[in-house]
Design a protein around this nucleic acid. Structure first.
Length: 328
DNA sequence: AATCGGATCAACCGCGGGTCG
DNA sequence: GCGACCCGCGGTTGATCCGAT
């Protein structure tokens, strides 16, 4: 059985609300409250809107207790914290998150998450969906794949990572299609990009390439990107990503990908950068909650970061045709 | 100055749960 | 218990803004 529409579509106006409409709706609700949205358009001075649209306009914009304008840092931290918790609970309820932020609506929170916070977290090396460092996600995925697949995955991911990082650092759009070394080889040299690029970009590329090749000098590059401490081993839980999860979560330090905002967010709490710095993005072993090394499937699936991206680029003891040899 | 593309946010859509007769 | 209806939610769309080229 099909559901009947909430209103007659032909007689209903859509799109932006006018000041006059706002006034009609607000004054009606001030007098009569918000019972029975279906009747409100008729009663509120013949509004050519459906009840649903009226409810949305009221709850998201006209309500007098609403807070308009920029989200504060504390609000952002609350959203991220609660989003992480809700993700673990396998249910994202924007209304519940918004309930913790007086004056904010679920639509506000949802929009802010989708347009700002997701990018912010990504820029910090944290997956906004799982709230785990990208490097740890890669390791988790790697443990489920056969070695040949992991090798290809690592190559592809590494290429994507380099391009994304270049984009973040230079604020210039990189040409993904013209970066063949990302997939076809491990070394990423200025010459291999076709030449003619700006000097700054070339320096960054070279630095990234060095870092990936585990060159000690390349630590400078990573220090520039993330002044992180030594990462702890083990799969990243939320406590690891957000160490102050239970006490009021906070990032301290510069922001990434949001220059000029004076944000107190930083990558210092994210082990992703450091993990990558240490061993090319994948940690050495997987530990369980007790700090003991977990097997995580077949032994040969275990990811050895040191082995993956050393200067020899030994990925696994693979048949030669499956190996991807570095460009040296 | 014009154009383009990305970012933002208000509004819409469809679904599912709750309530009532 | 069932159907009709209402409400609220999350996901998505589209208009507008704004900065870069």
């Amino acid at each position: 059985m099909g559901r009947i529409p909430c209103c007659e579509r032909e007689n209903v106006k859509r799109g932006q609300w006018t000041l006059e409409e706002d006034n009609k709706l607000a004054s009606y609700i001030a007098q009569h409250g918000t019972r029975n949205w279906r009747l409100i358009p008729k009663n509120a001075g013949r509004l050519q809107r459906c009840g649903k649209s009226c409810r949305l306009r009221w709850t998201n914009y006209l309500r007098p207790d609403l807070k308009h304008g920029e989200f504060s840092e504390a609000e952002e931290q609350t959203i991220v914290k609660l989003h992480a918790v809700r993700f673990v609970a396998n249910v994202i309820r924007w209304s519940l998150i918004a309930g913790q932020l007086p004056g904010r609506t679920d639509n506000d929170v949802k929009n802010h998450w989708n347009t700002k916070l997701k990018k912010k977290l990504s820029g910090m090396g944290i997956d906004p969906v799982t709230h785990k460092p990208f490097s740890h996600l890669m390791a988790e995925i790697a443990t489920t794949l056969a070695p040949p697949q992991v090798a290809h995955l690592a190559e592809a991911a590494l290429g994507c990572f380099k391009d994304e990082m270049l984009h973040l650092l230079t604020k210039k759009r990189t040409d993904f299609a013209s970066a063949p070394p990302a997939v076809t080889g491990n070394a990423y040299t200025p010459e291999s990009t076709g030449g003619g690029k700006e000097e700054t970009i070339e320096k960054i590329k070279l630095g990234l390439s060095k870092a990936i090749m585990h060159d000690p000098d390349a630590d400078k590059v990573w220090t520039m990107m993330a002044s992180a401490g030594e990462p702890s081993d083990g799969l990243a839980g939320l406590e690891e990503t957000y160490p102050t999860l239970n006490e009021g979560f906070r990032y301290d330090g510069p922001s990434y990908g949001n220059e000029g905002e004076g944000s107190a967010w930083s990558q210092s709490t994210c082990t992703g950068g450091a993990a990558a710095r240490r061993g090319g993005g994948l940690h050495d072993k997987v530990e369980d909650d007790n700090g003991e090394e977990a097997e995580g499937g077949k032994a040969e699936h275990k990811v050895s970061a040191a082995g993956m991206f050393t200067s020899e680029c030994v990925l696994w003891d693979l048949p030669d045709d499956l190996m991807i040899h570095p460009i040296v």
